[in-house]
Amino acid sequence: MSKPVVVGAVLYDPKVSVIWDIIRDFFEQNGCPMDVVFYTNYEMQVEALVKGHVDIAWNSPLAWLDSQRLSNDGCRAIAMRDTDRDRVSHLVVKAEGPVKTVADLKGKTVALGAKDSPQATLIPLGLLKRHGLEPGRDFAEKRFDVLVGKHGDHIGGERDALACLEKGEAAACAMLDLNWQAWQKDGTADPRKYRVLATTDPFDHCVFTVKKDFPADAEKKWLKALFSMSYDNPKHRQMMDMEGLKAWKEGRTSGFGPLSEATKSLKYWDGK
């Protein structure tokens, strides 16, 4: 048997381990043995990738930037879900509220997710900065630091931010488009009560990351197994539904611009 490829993943909920069990079994059955190592946060996982303790890291977008930062641009993005591409975040306000434009947020409070959430904090803050609104100076941040270190994987922070808007303790809140869509459908966010004030530029989300020196043959074999998953195959569909995708795509780095810009303008990495 060939040496297993070691894949790192951050676990925010024990139930997520079930998905990884299924994925690991799938790779085994497709002749590409794989070991999965779970980490409690992305910081540990990025360090493990850079030090070579794992071959492939299932990285958040912020973890991708961190991997590049700590490896001197020594990483490659090799695969992502179709649903990781071209996401946007919304600033949501009360439909009948006083905030009509982004400029109206001056002097108000904006509810955000965890401090390391690309979609619910960093990229929306970047959008506000581009509109000339400086956090702390022009508006107050009300942050919901749920499971810091997991980069907003857990939706709890975004849900708390929405609740904060609902209670009138904030004039706007930030959320990923997928959550906005889902919460309108399930009644969490009544579409008659809320509206989108502004939307960020499209950005990419999670990505399988390797170091540049990851052996090409191992990568080729692993990607072949990954890309052999087909939504048309009922045996694969359950696994893909659980992971929230219809197709695996090649990795790309063109979608990390808004987050990169936000981390720079917010001086996110200073002191790290």
Partner: peptide, 11 residues
């Protein structure tokens, strides 16, 4: 902490 039983590093 159920994550401990899943061998999550750092938990």
């Amino acid at each position: 902490n159920p994550l401990v039983t899943l061998d999550v590093l750092g938990e």
